[in-house]
Design a protein around this nucleic acid. Structure first.
Lengths: 104, 104
DNA sequence: ATTTTATTTCAAGGAAAGTTGAAATGAAAG
DNA sequence: CTTTCATTTCAACTTTCCTTGAAATAAAAT
């Protein structure tokens, strides 16, 4: 799942969608609004959103005709934790960057 | 640079190399040792190492015939910070996961 | 029922990345 | 200066991913 998440956010368009959804917060955004915000076609946006969904980065729910996408902040947190703990073995240099900006 | 770094660690083999270099610590490992450790051919390993080098994740230096690769822990820390700060806008849920395991 | 709006799915073509094995480089040793 | 060892580069092939535009689905309004 971590590999898929890393692959997902390594696309320029998807990282833009990601940031967009961070700004939107827990309320999320409809697919069409996301497409407009990042300047991509609906079908391309839909493609990228389902990629992000498979990677566990976003969740979705339908309200009438619109489908709202929300960033799964817990899942993103778990990804960061995986990186820090499982990949970096809690390395101090890396950990310090996560705690305070000036340590980095 | 962040995009390249995410793309780099989204490959199974490269993530294995990454973990291998975390274990090796600041002393690093020679290319051949890395290849043996991850069970990949020298040429494939070399390919992946130069990908990681371009992404800024590792540095290298030659000692006689061997080339030692080291993980750039500062660069990894900066990547984590970028993710937390620039991408996630210091979101509390995400930040909590980086600070303490039980919060995640 | 038909139309409109929002979104997804599909097929096809193009671009990028991964793999392999052989050849090339660079450095030390005989 | 030829051989050996460690690593990289290259070419060819395969696989995977991205993009586009058209068609399909899903829900609401007329």
């Amino acid at each position: 799942m971590a590999l898929a998440a890393f692959a997902s956010i390594s696309s320029k368009t998807r990282l833009r969608i990601f940031k967009c959804l961070v700004e939107a917060g827990s309320g999320g955004l409809a697919a069409g609004q996301i497409a407009a915000a990042v300047g991509a076609t609906p079908s391309r946006t839909s493609f990228h959103l389902s990629n992000m969904s498979e990677a566990g980065l976003v969740s979705s729910s339908r309200q009438a005709r619109q489908i709202t996408y929300r960033l799964d902040f817990k899942s993103v947190g778990a990804l960061m934790r995986y990186m820090l703990e499982d990949c970096c073995n809690n390395n101090e240099t890396v950990r310090a960057c996560c705690v305070a900006k000036d340590k980095c």
